[in-house]
Amino acid sequence: MPEKTPVANGAAAPGPVLPPLYRSLDPLTPERHAKLRVRDAGFGFAAQASAIPLVAEEFAVAARTLPIVFGAQAPHLPVALCGLASGSNLYVTEGGGWKPGAYVPAYLRRVPFFLVRSAPASDQLVLCIDSHAPQVSETEGAPLFDAEGKATPQLDRALAFTRSVEEGMLRTRGITERLNQLGLLKPAVVQFPHHGKPLRVDGFFAVDRPALAALPAEQFIELRDKGWLEPIYAHLLSIGGLPELAKDLATPA
C-alpha cells in the first residue's frame, strides 16, 4: 500500500501501558478492521478526566477557556485542567457534549487513533485504533477502508491529524524539558475566595514569574527566538481561570 496508508506490517503490539482514555490499541489493518467506521460519539468518554494533555501550539487558543498547568511529576508535561476534583470533568455536559464555546483539546479529537512505535528504538510509527472507543462502529459513521482494502479519505485525514498531534507532543516535551533546565517550572499554589472562604489549589507546576523575569538576556532571547514566549504567557494568563472551575464545587464545610 502507499506510504500514507497505515499498515502494521508485522509490527509488535503496543505495550500494556495505555495512554489516558484509551482502553485498547491495535495496529490498524484492512485484514482485521475492514468493517470499522468512525462516528461522532461526543465526549462522554472523557467525563472523568479532570486533566487533558495539551501541546504547546494549543496554548494560545486553549487559554481563553481552559486553565493550563504543568504536571507535578517529571517530566512535568502540560495539561488543560477540566476540573478540580479527581474524576470530574466540568467541561463534559450531561448529554456527553462539550461545554459550548470552550476549546476542545486535540488529544480528545484524536481518539480513537494513536501512533505507536513499531519497536522501542524504532522511528517507524504505526497507526493504532481503540476498537472499544465509542467512536468506533461497524454500522454507523465513515468507513476506514474501501471495498478493495485501501484507506478512505476519512482514514487519511485521521492519520494526518494523529501524526500532527504526535509531532506536537514531541515538540512540547522538548519545550518542557528546556523550561525545566532553565529552572522556570516550579510548584505553584493559587488561592482565591470560594463561597466566602479561601480555596487553595495546588499539586501542579507552573512557570515561575520571578524566575522568568530574572533569566539572563541570552536565555530569554532563546525563548523569544524559538517562539516559546507566547505559550508561556498564555499558560500564565490561563491560570486566572481557576476560580471559574471552582464555582460548581460544593460549598466548603
Rank of each mutant, 00 (worst) to 15 (best):
L125W: 07
A158I: 00
S137G: 12
D130C: 07
E177T: 07
D146C: 06
R171S: 09
R163F: 04
I129G: 11
E140R: 01
R117D: 03
Q124Y: 02
S122Y: 13
V111Q: 12
S131H: 13
R178K: 15
V111P: 11
F113A: 05
P105E: 00
C128W: 04
D123S: 14
R171M: 07
E138N: 13
G174L: 12
P153T: 14
L159K: 14
V165R: 06
A158L: 04
S131P: 11
P143F: 11
A147N: 02
A119Q: 13
P112Q: 10
A160H: 03
Q154L: 09
P105V: 01
Y103S: 00
K150H: 12
T176K: 04
K150P: 00
Q154I: 09
L125M: 07
I129V: 12
V136S: 03
F113W: 10
G183P: 00
R117L: 11
R171Y: 11
Q181E: 11
S137V: 04
R117E: 11
A142G: 04
Q154T: 15
D146M: 09
P134I: 08
E138C: 14
R171E: 12
V104N: 06
R117V: 00
T162L: 04
V116I: 03
A133E: 00
S118I: 05
P112R: 12
S137Y: 05
A106T: 04
F114I: 11
G141Y: 00
L155R: 02
E138S: 14
E140P: 04
M169Q: 09
S122L: 10
S137R: 04
A106V: 01
T176Y: 02
L179Y: 09
G174N: 05
M169T: 04
R178I: 09
D156R: 15
P112K: 12
R171F: 09
A147E: 12
A106Q: 12
S122C: 07
K150Y: 05
S122W: 08
G174V: 01
V165P: 08
P153C: 15
E140A: 05
L115N: 06
D156C: 10
V126N: 15
R173Y: 10
T172R: 08
E140Q: 08
H132D: 15
F161W: 02
L125G: 07
